[in-house]
Design a protein around this nucleic acid. Sequence first.
DNA 1: TATTGATAAATGAACATTCAATTATTACAG
DNA 2: CTGTAATAATTGAATGTTCATTTATCAATA
Lengths: 199, 199
Amino acid sequence: MNDHLFMIVMRTKDEEKQEALFEATVKVVNEIGFASSSVSKIAKEARVSPATLYTYHKSKKDLLISTYLNVKRQLSDTVMEGIDETLPIRDNFRQIWFNLFQFTVKYPDYFQFSEQFSNSPYNDRSLQNDIDQKFMPIAKLIRRGIERKVIKNLEVDLISAFVFYPVIILANPRLCRNFDPTDEQIDQSFQLAWDAIKL
Amino acid sequence: MNDHLFMIVMRTKDEEKQEALFEATVKVVNEIGFASSSVSKIAKEARVSPATLYTYHKSKKDLLISTYLNVKRQLSDTVMEGIDETLPIRDNFRQIWFNLFQFTVKYPDYFQFSEQFSNSPYNDRSLQNDIDQKFMPIAKLIRRGIERKVIKNLEVDLISAFVFYPVIILANPRLCRNFDPTDEQIDQSFQLAWDAIKL
DNA sequence: TATTGATAAATGAACATTCAATTATTACAG
DNA sequence: CTGTAATAATTGAATGTTCATTTATCAATA
């Protein structure tokens, strides 16, 4: 920061506003939808002037993309928590599966935002590659499981689709109603996922 | 039609325009996204005046909803094809699974539209109930499988999530790259789905 | 005082929808 | 068959609104 003279007398940007804009973006998109979410509505929700928003983000596109990346970063941090290569493959899968389940239940708004964004044209190939990088440990785990003949020898994407996508459905009350799962049901659900991919 | 005098000289609405508007809506939403899709752009794609669109649909909302229902109707018709209660449960599942797979591969645009719509606030509870009705035979099949102890005794939504959602992921090139499946891979994938739910 | 953060107000473009006027289709009288 | 009246389909243009973004100005800080 102090490398450049012109930065010395810079007034600091408000961290709270950054956070408020993030939360507001997710909230507004969830409440009125991606299509109806305007910069001014998001700014109002964050109790900030639309012009101020432009000191934090150079465009609406930039706001949405950085919100998406933020959601995905939090997701990957949460999901990868507790991975331990010394434990059996199945235990690691179970850990990831429960982390993912809890995240989706705790932050359903993040998920709905994420779904809306990823199905929009903002989500281009290079952005998706950046995100895939974050989830690399899971891909590695799958490959390790295949090598050790613990899980079926199939494409990594295929294994992922069968193990992790159903979680998203289950945790989404909009897609899966009448389903307020008990601990036992969550456990049974993981067993389904594991049965699908185990050798 | 001839019951009422005032209907005698009615000019008929153009079936082709109805269809053109449907295709245009799907196409425009796929190309520029749900958020950027305007009535005038859809009308232009359908080679129709924006004003004409309003003789077929009373609002933009109506246009989008009926497009969604049309997609879902085609999907349910295709997916339920060939269900035969006299055959084993697994064969019926296999049939549905392949129907679904082929539909998603053949009409990826319908799927992307569907995903964008269903994550939007247009998709309310009562609309979703109407759609669930269309897929009732699948719910029945699952319940029959549970009764006959062929599949695990779990919530219908849970079974559905594990069997059918991975298909959507697999068939979506945006979500599952480097995966141009051979017949054998498709077969293996169904085996995964079945392994998850079978008793 | 110099510089940046913050904002209200302004801008022009695009939006959904309406409307007045025109065009196309039909029934039927001749 | 042909012409005509009736009516709905169609449309370009206009409506007022909302949009994303910029600009000019002020406030805060070093």
